[in-house]
Design a protein around this nucleic acid. Structure first.
Length: 607
RNA sequence: GGUUCCGUAGCUCAGUUGGAUUAGAGCAACGCCCUUCUAAGGCGUGGGUCUUGGGUUCGAACCCCAACGGAAUCACCA
């Protein structure tokens, strides 16, 4: 693919050789986009070259500029401000660049081949005792997007999900359902399965706390100190005791408990599937902790035999990571049961058996940074090739204006409610604008879905993933300004123009006119379009959907300015100009769509 | 206390292989622009000691050191 920057960089290297007799590398050529307040497209910063030229910045710039003008067709004119050589690229180069972009339906994206590296991306990984909330939504959208971006950079991608389907938390829901459920099912109640299970998790907590309060009061009355009474009550309340007994039965494979567990998990999965589908995310392979939690033991035993791990007198197994600057880490309890870390080792083992993974990416919140630091070391010690280079894609929390979401305080933002609310809001905005009168109800609803989800997804993905972010439920998510709908709207407008052109019998030119005068805005738009390839590359390198989001916004913002003062289909526009503008618009739409699709955001043809 | 991350406009956020006098958007506030390709748009006004203090250099929001403020983590929970 033709790139003005690449050619210019090479030319500068030759110029420095010719003028000053020195060999420099591409890395030493500081070429950047010219700032908007100056004349030019690209700027060569000559300060770093002064040591070579042994001349003043102005003279060095002039030497180089004149050489470039004489020996290449890349420089029309130039201006120099101190160490900044601003280059104006001839229009023919921009037209050539646009023609290249126009010819490539998937400009900027690299298609994977059978030999491409295999990247496995783990995301979502929910517990099965309650429905998904806003924090999970951020995880799911980031995971999906990171997978799309990895693929766009020429990797084969396997999306995976490890479902935490076992443990005391599920037993709590199961127990509460047995006690207070009266046989309620998703069918009988009309509730989504995950919400039904979540309700019983809450019910457990409510009754448990009542028991604790009662028990504590009795113990205090018997003369026990308050603090001790509270600890005792929490540990010995009948409900928690029963839940623990249930977990033991589960581990023993008690048929009745297992059957209930299977039934209730199925309800949850059915509920999750609806949410996943609404979010537009999916997985290539799903792992369940009930299948993997025993697998890690074998690996730990192996490490023990190799002398990587140590067994203590009580029988527990530890990894000593003090040499790596970390602590000692428990891998097996004294009774031989596994812990979280053991499970992750087991899961890694299974994945390695299933796929020839070259890189593993875990999309998991930043509260687990330490865990993944340890996991990386352990997997490496155990001989997993990708262990050392595993990527913990560590993202920040979604907070409310008053701080964290707390289920106790009922401030958890439910994923399903949020999605539904966004779609409804999109529909209202749409109906008020009244541009949808000729559409069928189904079409209206489909656009509302695309726009509502676009708003939600863009809102969560435009922010740097590493950072904690704030979501204000009162203000809700905007549809104006730097938002998904703003970008979708621009796309829909372009599509509308293209439809109108077609209706008027104007064929979209396959080849660009060669003789067109370009405005500065138009040249800048082509330049920006061309940058998409580099943006995708950089988003892939940094695992950063927000880079794509911000690029799309900037592109669309600039297009809107162009749109505002450049007529396209009006009578007085010369044919060559009209054709050029149609092609430019079409390619802006194309690139924006490709970019937004990498975020999992769909683009409406109308809105 | 140790480790990691963060601190940019009233609010939410861009801006890191250091670059140009005047640090950008959006929201909120206040103006202007629809008989003209979709006004979910465009244009404008006001709003900042880039937490603070040192250092590195031709040049620092960005790199280094320290302080202050906030978050996460340092579980035989997952």
């Amino acid at each position: 693919m033709f790139s003005i920057e690449t050619h210019l960089t090479e030319a500068v290297i030759r110029a420095v050789k010719a003028l000053y007799g020195a060999d420099i590398t591409a890395a030493q050529v500081s070429l950047q986009k010219t700032r908007p307040d100056f004349q030019g497209h690209l700027t060569l910063v000559t300060f770093p070259l002064l040591r070579i030229s042994k001349k003043k910045p102005e003279d060095t710039g002039e030497d180089l500029a004149i050489w470039l003008q004489e020996h290449t067709d890349l420089v029309l004119t130039f201006n120099i401000i101190k160490g900044f050589l601003n280059l104006i690229i001839p229009p023919a180069q921009w037209l050539r660049l646009l023609a290249d972009i126009h010819a490539d339906e998937r400009y900027g994206l690299i298609a994977p081949t059978d030999d491409s590296p295999l990247v496995m991306i783990e995301y979502s990984s929910p517990n099965t005792n309650k429905p998904l909330h806003l924090g999970h939504v951020r995880n799911n959208l980031l995971g999906w997007s990171v997978a799309q971006i990895a693929q766009a950079n020429g990797n084969r991608v396997v999306k995976t999900n490890i479902v935490n389907d076992r443990g005391i938390h599920i037993c709590k829901s199961m127990l509460a359902w047995q006690k207070y459920g009266a046989g309620e099912t998703p069918e009988s109640s009309g509730k989504k399965g995950d919400h039904l299970i979540g309700d019983y998790y809450v019910a457990f907590d409510k009754h448990y706390r009542a028991e604790v309060a009662e028990l504590k009061a009795r113990l205090c009355a018997e003369g026990m100190a308050e603090e001790e009474a509270e600890t005792r009550a929490k540990a010995e309340a009948p409900l928690i005791t029963e839940a623990r007994e249930m977990l033991v039965k589960w581990e023993q494979g008690d048929p009745e408990v297992r059957a209930l567990w299977r039934k209730m998990n199925e309800w949850v999965y059915a509920g999750f599937d609806i949410t996943y589908k609404a979010l537009g995310v999916s997985f290539d392979k799903i792992y369940y902790e009930s299948d993997t939690y025993l697998e890690g033991k074998e690996k730990v035993e192996e490490g023990l035999a190799k002398g990587i791990f140590q067994r203590r007198p009580d029988g527990s197994v530890w990894a000593d990571l003090t040499a790596d600057g970390l602590d000692e880490k428990l891998l097996l309890r004294a009774d031989g049961t596994s812990v979280y870390m053991t499970q992750d080792i087991g899961t890694a083992k299974l994945r390695y058996q299933d796929y020839p993974i070259s890189k593993m990416v875990y999309v998991v919140g930043n509260e687990q940074n330490y865990h993944f630091q340890v996991l990386s070391l352990l997997l490496d010690k155990l001989g997993f090739e990708w262990g050392k280079s595993l990527v913990h894609f560590s993202y920040g929390m979604v907070e409310l204006p008053n701080g964290k979401m707390k289920s106790r305080e009922g401030t958890v933002v439910d994923a399903d409610d949020l999605i539904e609310g966004m779609i409804e809001q999109a529909r209202r905005t749409m109906d008020e604008a009244g541009k949808n009168a000729d559409l069928s109800e189904a079409e209206k609803q489909e656009i509302a879905r695309i726009v509502g989800l676009g708003a939600l997804k863009y809102f969560l993905l435009k922010v740097d993933a590493r950072k904690n972010m704030v979501f204000n439920p009162e203000e809700s998510i905007d549809f104006n300004g730097n938002t998904g709908p703003f970008i979708q709207y621009t796309y829909a407008r372009i599509r509308s123009i293209l439809r109108k052109a077609q209706d008027a019998g104007i064929a979209l030119p396959t080849a660009l006119p060669t003789e067109v005068e370009l405005s500065a805005k138009e040249e800048a738009l082509i330049q920006q379009l061309a940058e998409f390839a580099e943006v995708v590359r950089s988003a892939g390198e940094d695992y950063s959907p927000s880079v794509i989001a911000n690029y799309c916004y900037e592109l669309v913002k600039n297009y809107n300015q162009f749109y505002h003062d450049s007529p396209i289909l009006r009578e007085d526009v010369p044919v060559a100009v009209r054709d050029f503008r149609l092609v430019l618009s079409q390619n802006v739409a194309k690139v924006v769509r490709l970019g937004m699709n990498l975020l999992g955001i769909e683009m409406p043809e109308r809105m």
